[in-house]
Computed example of a mutant assay.
Amino acid sequence: MENHELKRYLLNKPFASVGQPFGEGIDVYKVKDKMFATLALGKMGQESSAHWWVNLKCDPDEAAILRDIFEAVIPGYHMNKRHWNTVILDGSIPQGEIERMIDNSFLLVVSKMTKKDQTSILVHV
């Protein structure tokens, strides 16, 4: 999945926005001011890699399973490693699987919001 496709997919989520609160080169994607993804070239803006890295929130049990299945999924870089995975976009993970991980991250964040906010978001999903 190319980074421009990924950016478009992330921003197509209901109420999604992007900013750079951690500095230039690190895009932070939020739903109603709650982070569900970060995207940067290399190690979160350090450009130590030719690949884009995306951090996604994940159920802890599923996070461990995904790390076992895919070499390009590692514990969340600069994140809570129990609840976040870093996905290295090196072409080894099918696009549908990356989209599923994004969807799950988004829904996990929404599930922690107030019922009012959940309802206003989920009606668009």
Rank of each mutant, 00 (worst) to 15 (best):
M1P: 13
N3S: 12
N3R: 13
N3P: 12
H4T: 14
E5K: 13
E5G: 02
L6V: 14
L6K: 08
K7E: 14
K7C: 03
K7N: 10
R8M: 12
N12I: 00
N12E: 15
K13H: 12
S17N: 12
V18T: 11
G19I: 00
Q20S: 12
Q20H: 10
Q20M: 13
Q20Y: 06
P21D: 04
P21C: 04
P21R: 06
F22K: 05
F22I: 07
G23R: 06
G23P: 12
G25Q: 09
I26L: 14
I26R: 11
I26H: 07
V28Y: 07
K30W: 00
K30Y: 01
K34S: 12
A37Q: 08
A37R: 02
L39C: 14
L39P: 10
L39D: 10
K43D: 15
M44C: 04
Q46D: 12
Q46T: 05
E47H: 11
E47S: 11
E47I: 02
A50Y: 00
H51Q: 06
H51S: 11
H51G: 01
W52F: 15
W52A: 01
W52C: 06
V54Q: 02
N55L: 03
L56A: 09
L56W: 04
K57A: 11
D59Q: 13
D61P: 01
D61I: 11
D61R: 12
E62N: 08
E62C: 07
A63C: 03
A63T: 07
A63K: 07
A63L: 06
A64G: 06
A64S: 08
I65V: 15
L66A: 05
R67F: 02
F70Y: 15
F70T: 08
E71Y: 06
E71M: 07
A72W: 03
A72R: 07
A72D: 11
I74E: 13
Y77P: 11
M79D: 06
N80C: 09
K81Q: 09
K81V: 03
R82N: 09
H83G: 04
H83Y: 15
H83E: 10
H83C: 05
W84P: 10
T86K: 07
V87A: 03
L89C: 12
D90M: 01
G91C: 04
S92Q: 12
S92L: 08
S92T: 15
I93E: 01
I93G: 03
P94Y: 02
P94E: 13
P94W: 03
Q95C: 04
E97G: 01
I98S: 05
I98A: 01
I98Q: 05
I98W: 03
E99N: 10
M101L: 09
M101W: 01
I102Q: 04
D103N: 15
D103Y: 00
N104P: 00
N104D: 15
N104M: 10
N104F: 02
S105M: 09
S105P: 06
S105N: 09
F106Q: 13
F106W: 10
L108M: 14
V109L: 03
V110I: 13
V110M: 10
S111P: 11
M113V: 10
M113L: 13
T114C: 00
T114E: 11
T114F: 00
K115Y: 01
K115W: 00
K116W: 00
K116R: 15
D117F: 01
Q118T: 10
Q118W: 05
T119A: 14
T119D: 14
S120I: 08
S120V: 08
S120N: 13
I121N: 11
L122W: 07
L122R: 15
L122C: 08
V123S: 13
